[in-house]
Structure formats: structure tokens, C-alpha cells
Write a protein that binds this DNA or RNA. Structure first.
Ligand SMILES: [Mn+2]
Ligand SMILES: [Mn+2]
Ligand SMILES: [Zn+2]
Ligand SMILES: [Zn+2]
Lengths: 126, 126
DNA sequence: TACACTAAAGCAACTTAGTTGCAATAATAC
DNA sequence: GTATTATTGCAACTAAGTTGCTTTAGTGTA
């Protein structure tokens, strides 16, 4: 295992994601930071956390990456195969407690999954 | 229904997607064009086709949109809830003939789904 | 065939998520 | 305290996708 260091900025990212109701984009995390942090730093912090299995991300329909803390994801299963929902109106991406039964694929070695359902959330239905 | 016109460039896009083994990015479609076409044009052709249900797209883990012809998708089901696979190495996205049983969601009105599995394809395993 | 109407295409400028290379900073070990 | 190097900052860049406006070319009608 690589040597790692504990830093204030990493802690802030964890705090922010811990208190988040939804997954967050890098932009949103930056805005939530109590101190000024460079965006490259946040990208790299999240990259490291993702490698360690501390966070996971989904690519929204909009092509942006949305991050969330891994709670049970990697503990109970080696893959986090739960569903996500993205609202077309507010763009928020939510982790949902539904798990998908992933089929065995013949010609592909599956390492990760991203299950995204898209539509309108309750808050945005008018 | 809006008035539409049949154009050579739209036909080329259909031809290219019909003969494609995998889903294609806009970049790939542009390269496959037998004549020079502006990228904005291709984006708009695909947008129109997607509205009509002629094509569907998946957002890859890389944040890029990958397009494919709709074959049975919208005929048999109102949503095309089949799985896609993206290879981390060659980035190719493939439509797979596996359908996902989508759960009823309480707080969300689902309109579309994007099921993506990520890993390494047979061709790229070394 | 000529003409009108306007959908579709082209073009250039722009937006923005994410990346890269390198220099500066600071956490940790000794 | 000092050395080591993981982490952060900075600036410049890449590339997907968008926007506003002009030009081109299908299609219906006379
Ligand atoms: Mn999740
Ligand atoms: Mn598909
Ligand atoms: Zn919403
Ligand atoms: Zn591959």
C-alpha cells in the first residue's frame, strides 16, 4: 500500500459528502468548501478516495461525474450495484437503496457498474 | 407532428449506425462520414433522431455520449432498459441483449434508463 | 419549371468539465 | 530540526457539447 497523508482538505471533502443529501459534482463540492481549494486538488482527492473505495461516482446523463460516500457498497459487495436517479430538471443525482442483479457476461469482464434512471424528482414535479 | 425533411446527411448517419458493431460517439460518426459534415449538424441530427425514438444514447463512464440505433427498444418496451458495456481500455460501448427489471420508484418519475457495466472486453484482455 | 417557405446545415465563437506538467507547500519519519 | 515526498496550487490546455446567426437546400404549390 502506498503511503498516504492526512490533510485538512481531504477531511473537508469527507465532511461535505457525509452531510450531503445527494451525490455531488466537483463544482458543488468546491462551493461547499469552507476554505478556498483548487479544483485540481478536489479532483485528485476524489480520485484517491475512489481508488480506496471510500467514494464512488456515477456519470450523469449530462456527462458530469457525481460523487458519493461509499457506505455499504464495497463492504457487502465487491461492486456497488445500486441504482441512481438523476432528475432532468434539477440535475440532482441520488443513490437509491435498490440493488440490481447483474448478469454474467460472456465476452466482458465486469469491474464496475453504473445504473442510472432518469426522469423528474418529486421536488421538481409541478 | 413537426414537418421534417429527408436529407443525404441524415441518411448517412442512419447508414453508419446501421452498419456499426458498437455504439458510436459523435466524433466516430463524423470520421465515418463519406462526405465532410459539420459536427453541429451531426449533434442536431442525432438529437432529432433521439426525440423520434430512432436512436438512443448512453453516457459512458468517460462522460461522452454514445449512440446506437433503436431496434426493438421502443417497440417492445416504452423504455429501452437493456444493459450496456463500456471497455475501460478501448472505450467501446456495446448494447447487450440483457434487460433490467426496473423497480417502481416512490419519489421519482422515471422516463429513461441508462444501465452501464464497465470493465474489460474480450478483445482487450491480454 | 419557377418560386416561396422554412427545415436543415454550416460556421465561428463560446462554455465548461476535466487534464497535465511543473513549481510550491506541508505532513510525516528520523 | 531536517529530509523526504505526498499533496496542493497554478496556469495552460483539451475536448465535448452548445449557441446564435447566416446560408443552403428539401418540399409543396402554381
Ligand atoms: Mn451511489
Ligand atoms: Mn443500447
Ligand atoms: Zn429534481
Ligand atoms: Zn476493449
Amino acid at each position: 500500500m502506498k503511503k498516504t497523508r492526512n490533510t485538512q482538505k481531504q477531511d473537508y471533502v469527507i465532511d461535505i459528502l457525509t452531510n450531503a443529501k445527494h451525490t455531488m459534482s466537483v463544482e458543488a463540492i468546491l462551493k461547499a468548501m469552507p476554505i478556498k481549494v483548487n479544483k485540481t486538488t478536489v479532483y485528485r482527492i476524489l480520485e484517491r478516495f475512489a481508488e480506496k473505495g471510500k467514494v464512488h461516482f456515477v456519470t450523469g446523463e449530462d456527462g458530469k461525474a457525481y460523487y458519493a460516500l461509499c457506505n455499504d457498497c464495497n463492504v457487502k459487495h465487491e461492486m456497488h450495484n445500486h441504482i441512481h436517479f438523476q432528475c432532468k430538471s434539477c440535475k440532482k443525482v441520488t443513490c437509491l437503496p435498490y440493488e440490481i442483479e447483474v448478469p454474467e457476461l460472456k465476452d466482458f469482464e465486469v469491474q464496475e457498474t453504473q445504473f442510472l434512471m432518469i426522469g423528474i424528482c418529486d421536488m421538481c414535479i409541478s
